[in-house]
Design a protein around this nucleic acid. Structure first.
Length: 601
DNA sequence: CGGGGATGGT
DNA sequence: ACCATCC
């Protein structure tokens, strides 16, 4: 089944795709060695708390393995040089650089943790096929097993070409960044990942489709299959399914008794080496967080200190990211004799984006803003802990979990204009046309950024089922729409882009000066207090005439490509900057992310 | 037994 | 919103 091609040279064939999985050898250790070359020659361990999380190959000669206790590792290798790896910043930077190199191939790249990436080079291979004589293609690196039959779909040739691309990629990563890597080449993600470590370190391996099922049965246990973790494995084992072969032979009906139907099918497919999940282009993270674990903390003031420290570090990360967070989560782990680790509890709440200001493209938080954040944090903490009783914590964490939607990439003209507050309003109106209440742009209401000193508002945004904040912008959209013929009637004029503003936008961009020079919308809260009627009307209207929000003169004055971009956003807001990705990926987000690649400092 | 982060379920 | 699970 798996090895048979259902169609000749058909892009829909089971073997049509060309997937590479790239894994950086002992990632943390390599980062440290690149940073400090003198570490290259010594046995090196990366330490987090009391654990050696990874080691270089020199240390592995002594038997120092991943996730080994420090004491144990030192026993095996007394000369082991230990470097603290609790601050992941350098690793994250290196990871982003590698991701950036992969982007050079103009193919979908999916990041899997810090040191692994998938890249789908199917299109690239198709192009190469046209320009080469496919009869005498040689592969690069190892093959798991030479094919016995000549697959009529042509996948063997494609995978050999894929291996050459993999070799090119690994070469560039090494030449540009100094990291050695392993690669797995296969027609799906599952096999690419699993075959990757076949030749370690610094080498690569192809597996052909016909060997998928038999290769899977050589795996140590079901736990080796990605997505089968401890819990799933437990469930399987309790059903006497222990080896991959057991799973291959298990009946779907039995599996469905213990798993959802989807999961049952998935498990069975995986065991046979089948996996049709697409390589999904990775974008900006959906959350940015930090944690600190420790022996014990039982005093409130200490907790506050921990959070203060975490917040300071976190704000640096958020500033690098550049987006404005709108939601904050506090996590903690209570001392629990039963469980060794895990069992986190968390509370989250909306935060007012007015805490942040985007000045000259840089995200800043005032002293007062930080105090506000601390108030929110401690309020969430109070939700988690009954202060009338003693408490014992072993971990606290802090994460920003939602960000203002931007809808565009950095290079786009829309993003360029987006820095102007009035333009933001225009674009976000569109944004609201089909996203109901999920993503708000609060910044459009906040009064002139840096002068926000008003602490009288509740720091914590209420998070009711129907968020109150939602109403004003929806209302605003309606008003603008209805009043577009006579904008002076209401204060919606600021929502529109006039030619003078456009000039100013350009000036501001050139000088990168304070945006308070820009004409801006006044909050006009009075107009927005009662909204229900207008809201309802608004929801029924269709969005096709949204461009009317933009001054026609201005719109016409824009270059053609800008007009096109704006139009396409109105027509189809979420797609304008969508990286190509399979139609199956339902939750794709905007993804152009230059900042993501910029190394720190 | 670490420090992240993503995703799916309820 | 929060948890569980996975890497």
């Amino acid at each position: 089944m798996e090895s048979g091609c259902s169609h000749y040279n058909d892009v829909d064939s089971e073997h049509a795709r060309c997937i590479i999985h790239i894994d950086v050898d002992c990632f943390y250790a390599q980062v440290e060695m690149v940073l400090k070359p003198e570490l290259r020659t010594v046995p090196l361990g990366i330490q987090q708390k009391n654990i050696v999380v990874t080691s270089n190959y020199e240390a592995r000669k002594y038997g120092v393995q991943k996730c080994m206790l420090v004491t144990e590792a030192l026993k095996l290798c007394p000369n082991l040089k230990l470097v603290n790896g609790e601050d992941l910043h350098n690793y994250r930077t290196a990871s982003n650089k590698i991701f950036a190199v992969l982007q050079c191939w103009k193919c979908p790249v999916e990041k899997l943790g810090m040191d692994e990436n998938y890249i789908d080079v199917t299109n690239l291979v198709q192009e190469k096929m046209k320009s080469v004589n496919s009869s005498n293609i040689t592969h690069a690196g190892h093959v798991y097993s030479e094919p016995s039959i000549d697959c009529p779909c042509g996948c063997h040739t494609r995978l050999r070409i894929t291996s050459q691309i993999a070799s090119d990629i690994r070469k560039k990563i090494f030449e540009d960044l100094g990291f050695t890597t392993c690669a797995g080449i296969a027609h799906n993600k599952l096999l690419a990942k699993l075959i990757c470590p076949q030749n370690k370190p610094n080498d690569q391996t192809i597996i052909f489709p016909e060997h998928g099922t038999s290769f899977m049965s050589t795996l140590q246990s079901i736990r080796s299959i990605p997505s089968i973790g401890s819990k799933t494995a437990e469930a399987l084992i309790s059903n006497n399914i222990i080896t991959v072969s057991d799973l291959q032979e298990a009946s779907l009906d039995v599996l469905k008794k213990h798993f959802s139907s989807d999961m049952a099918v998935r498990l069975k497919s995986l065991s046979l080496g089948e996996d049709n999940t697409p390589v999904k282009q990775t974008g900006k993270p959906q959350s940015i967080g930090l944690e600190d674990s420790f022996k014990i903390v039982s005093v409130r003031s200490e907790v506050e200190d921990k959070f203060t420290a975490l917040l300071q570090r976190l704000l640096v990360l958020v500033r690098e990211d550049g987006r404005i967070p709108v939601s904050l989560r506090v996590t903690l782990r209570k001392k629990d004799a039963k469980r060794l680790s895990s069992h986190r509890e968390s509370r989250q709440s909306q935060i007012s984006p007015s805490i942040f200001s985007l000045t000259g493209g840089t995200l800043t938080v005032t002293e007062a803003g930080q105090q506000k954040l601390m108030n929110i944090i401690m309020r969430l903490f109070n939700k988690l802990i009954d202060l009338t009783k003693p408490f014992h914590l072993t971990l606290v964490g802090l994460a920003f979990t939602k960000f203002q939607e931007r809808m565009t990439g950095r290079g786009s003209i829309v993003n360029y204009l987006m820095n102007d507050i009035s333009v933001q309003s225009v674009l976000n109106l569109q944004n609201e046309c089909d996203t109901s209440a999920s993503s708000m742009d609060y910044s459009a209401v906040s009064p002139s950024s840096s002068t926000t000193t008003d602490l009288s508002d509740a720091e914590v945004e209420p998070s009711p089922k129907k968020p109150k904040k939602v109403t004003w912008i929806a209302k605003r959209r309606c008003l603008a729409k209805e009043e577009v013929a006579s904008p002076s009637k209401l204060k919606v004029g600021e929502l529109r882009l006039n030619s003078k503003e456009l000039e100013k936008v350009s000036e501001l961009r050139l000088n990168s000066r304070d945006r308070s020079l820009t004409p801006r919308a006044s909050p006009a809260k009075d107009n927005l207090s009662d909204t229900s009627d207008t809201m309802r009307d608004c929801e029924e209207k269709n969005c096709d005439d949204c461009p009317s929000y933009v001054d026609k003169e201005v719109f016409n004055a824009l270059p053609d490509d800008m007009q096109k971009e704006l139009k396409s956003m109105w027509k189809n807001p979420s797609s304008s900057e969508m990286p190509r990705s399979s139609p199956r990926t339902n939750k794709a987000k905007p993804n152009t992310i230059m900042k993501y690649f910029v190394p720190h400092k």
